[in-house]
Design a protein around this nucleic acid. Structure first.
Length: 697
RNA sequence: GGCCCCGUAGCUCAACGGAUAGAGCGUCCCCCUCCUAAGGGGAAGGUUGCAGGUUCAAAUCCUGCCGGGGUCGCCA
């Protein structure tokens, strides 16, 4: 039982630390019990970190005994999974790292370390290998203990505190409020949201933030476009001139304008209605964007408006702050070499000295007409984020904003006196495929693919998972047919199917009269999980807490998707071996053995269901249902797409034709799997972190 | 031309500075009445674009080339 759990280091019992029993019971369910001395608990069961502690302690003893000189820097000592299983369970690089500073040959250090470590009951073997690696074999009991760790920790398994409660702001999507979200925005939205979940899981306090680009001329264009739809709603012929947004998603805006203003805005000059129509249309667009994001399972904590910065003095204050550092001056830029614009003429501008921070050229903060460039309010916005007390900023931009990175980092470095790091993740474009054909880019196409189209066609969970199957800075293929196939080629199905098998085992066990609730599984005799294949499964599961930390430290949520695929792969392999080797099956003749085996399976399920934060628990059933029959046809048409958001790759012409035909593969779809298993959405593509709310919990 | 990203097996891609660079697909060989119903197992396949450098150790870090993409004042 969890209540008997003892700290591996201090051997103290874990407790809640809560004032009363009821609260303690809740804490136990939440996986919050811990050693009150060293604060290690269910949320910190990184076995690799534990063994590393043992290694560091052993090195400390060697120093005390004079076997190693004092004052050694042990920070480079690493304990990691070996690439090759033949090298044991964990590899220690200490001897190689310390050989030079200690002035001793690596093998001598490694052998001494091996002797020290062998006194630890958790360590069953320590062999010196290669250039000085110390390969550790750990006791089976340690691995079997992983079952308890996972079951007891529940949702908390793998949770880490490496974030230290630091406040991080993740800004993502930030599309123009001039139309629905399209495919170009999806990847950035998913990466930003998954990263936010990941960081919250790893101990950061996360704020998800959307910067509304409502300060530029594009919202005036939106207003004029909406005004034409307003005229249309009043029975007049709309004049969708060149340069306006032609999409019919503005028709409802026109009707809403009519409902509010009747015909009172007709035959009035633009100066009369522009501001009001702009605000009205922008708000409706933002409402639509919020709904689009919700359909993907994304909910922002904060929406910040660019326009709202105007008139507050914040922009001026930010620029003046920089001027006080001698980073703002009036000057003339050289024309870009090699590709001089035809209409180039030298002109004096107000410039930000970003070259002082490694940028190639200083950047203008004012246009020739004296108004601010896009950069200026963005400086103020980032200054605002710094002043709100964030310890760390992350921006998720489309790859076409790569040129913007240095100047933004320069501004944040200057305005925070270098105290607040800004990491900018550039999201490469997504190539869409359907029917074996790529969607050709076409600016003049009559239709473009919206986020809703994608979600309704394949589901939010599938979309999210696929978007994380590549590192952010690598282009990604999104094949509408493949992601709905039930085959091994489809990573989403592959992972979902592993979970389906787990649940199949649990269901059959219940039918056989076995108790498979968490408490029963926790109480099972886990020493029966002694087969190599079972231990291997446990080792993989044990890597999860470490992976969380690595992924979070590097701001790389895609690692989670890869890990899940590997985990599913191991589970399938174990399952398949059960076909040939009966003792590896989860359901055995002996009930006690069955329960132990099922504990392993249940363990896996906990893992898939609870630990993953590729999505979030938003209770959005609608996003999980089968697409309607009409899905697949773009309902939002436009001759040109709205301007790209900074988080989009729309600037590179990312608009595609959506072809309506979509012959469903005869094999069935992931949605069918959903109906059968009732799992789709909880696992696989969804994998939302249950109980994680924005801002961390 | 400047800057940014990418370049790994035939293809699509992994690899926190670690050992003999790994998967999947494809190819070749063998097997398949059994918990879900995706078949399973094995083999071949590599100078990590090229050349230097740092390091005990480089696909990874640095420099320079080559190739692909992105971007370069009055768009956001």
């Amino acid at each position: 039982m969890a209540a008997q759990r003892r700290c591996r280091r201090t051997t103290q019992r874990w407790t809640s630390g809560a004032p009363d029993g009821a609260r303690a019971a809740l804490d136990l369910l939440a996986g919050l019990w811990q050693c009150q001395t060293c604060k290690t608990g269910f949320d910190q069961m990184n076995l690799f970190a534990e063994i590393r502690n043992a290694v560091v302690d052993a090195l400390g003893r060697m120093i005390a005994e004079g076997a190693l000189p004092s004052g050694l820097d042990l920070s480079a000592v690493a304990v990691e999974p070996p690439r090759d299983a033949a090298h044991g369970d964990m590899a220690v690089n200490a001897a190689m790292v310390l050989a030079k500073p200690a002035g001793k040959p690596p093998r001598e250090i490694a052998e001494g370390l091996a002797r020290e470590l062998m006194a630890d009951p958790r360590i069953a073997g320590a062999d010196v290998a290669g250039p000085g690696f110390l390969n550790l074999r750990l006791s089976a009991a340690l691995w079997q203990g992983v079952v308890r760790d996972v079951l007891a920790a529940g949702k908390g398994y793998g949770r880490s505190d490496i974030g230290g409660g630091n406040k991080v702001n993740v800004e993502f999507v930030s599309a123009n409020p001039t139309g629905p979200m399209h495919v170009g925005h999806v990847r950035g939205a998913v990466v930003g949201d998954a990263l936010s979940n990941l960081l919250a899981f790893a101990g950061w306090r996360v704020t998800r933030e959307y910067y509304i680009n409502d300060g530029g001329a594009q919202v005036d264009v939106l207003a004029r476009s909406a005004y034409e739809r307003y005229r249309e709603a009043n029975g007049l012929e709309p004049e969708i001139r060149e340069g306006l947004y032609p999409g019919d998603y503005l028709i409802p805006v026109g009707e809403a304008l009519k409902a509010k203003y009747g015909d009172s805005l007709l035959d009035k000059g633009e100066q009369y209605w522009l501001a009001e129509v702009r605000d009205f249309a922008t708000e409706m667009m933002m409402q639509m964007i919020r709904e689009d994001l919700a359909s993907l399972g994304v909910a922002m904590d904060v929406y910040s408006s660019e326009k709202a910065l105007y008139g507050t003095g914040e922009i001026e204050a930010a620029i003046e702050t920089l001027r006080g550092m001698d980073l703002i001056y009036d000057g003339v830029l050289e024309p870009p070499k090699g590709k001089e614009p035809e209409d180039w003429e030298p002109r004096e501008q107000t410039l930000f000295r970003s070259t002082a921070y490694g940028d190639d050229v200083d950047r203008p903060v004012k246009k020739s007409d004296g108004s601010w460039t896009y950069f200026a309010p963005d400086i103020a916005y980032h200054y605002n984020k710094v002043r709100r007390g964030f310890d760390q900023l992350i921006d998720i931009f489309g790859a076409d904003h790569g040129g913007y990175v240095k100047r933004m980092k320069a501004a944040v470095a200057a305005l925070s006196q270098g105290r607040v790091p800004l990491d900018i993740k550039l999201i490469q474009l997504v190539k869409l495929w359907k029917g074996g054909q790529p969607f050709k880019m076409s600016k003049r196409a009559g239709t473009f693919v919206t986020l809703r189209d994608v979600v309704e066609e394949v589901g939010a969970d599938v979309t999210r998972f696929i978007m994380l199957t590549r590192k952010n800075d690598v282009a990604l293929d999104f094949d509408f047919d493949k992601v709905q196939e039930q085959s091994k080629d489809n990573p989403v199905f592959y992972v979902q199917y592993a979970n389906a098998r787990v649940n199949s085992v649990l269901r059959k066990a219940r039918e056989a009269g076995l108790a498979v609730d968490d408490a029963s599984l926790l109480a099972a005799d886990h020493t029966q999980l002694s087969h190599d294949a079972e231990i291997a499964m446990l080792k993989k599961i044990a890597e999860w807490p470490r992976l969380v930390e690595i992924a979070a430290r590097n701001n790389e949520p895609h690692r989670v998707a890869f890990f899940l695929y590997d985990l599913a792969s191991d589970f399938h392999a174990l399952w398949n071996r059960g076909n040939d080797e009966g003792q590896l099956r989860f359901l055995q003749d002996d009930p006690a053995t069955s329960v132990a085996k099922i504990a392993l399976a249940g363990n896996k399920r906990c893992h898939l269901r609870r630990s993953c934060y590729l999505g979030r628990d938003a209770g959005r059933r609608n996003a999980l249902t089968k697409p309607s029959a009409s899905a697949g046809q773009s309902r939002r048409n436009g001759r040109d797409q709205p301007g790209p958001g900074r988080g989009s790759d729309g600037g590179s012409g990312f608009c595609r034709i959506w072809r309506a035909h979509s012959p469903r593969a005869g094999k069935g779809t992931a949605h069918d799997a959903d109906r059968r298993c009732g799992l789709f959405g909880r696992v696989g593509g969804g994998l939302r972190v249950l109980g994680l709310q924005a801002g961390g919990a």
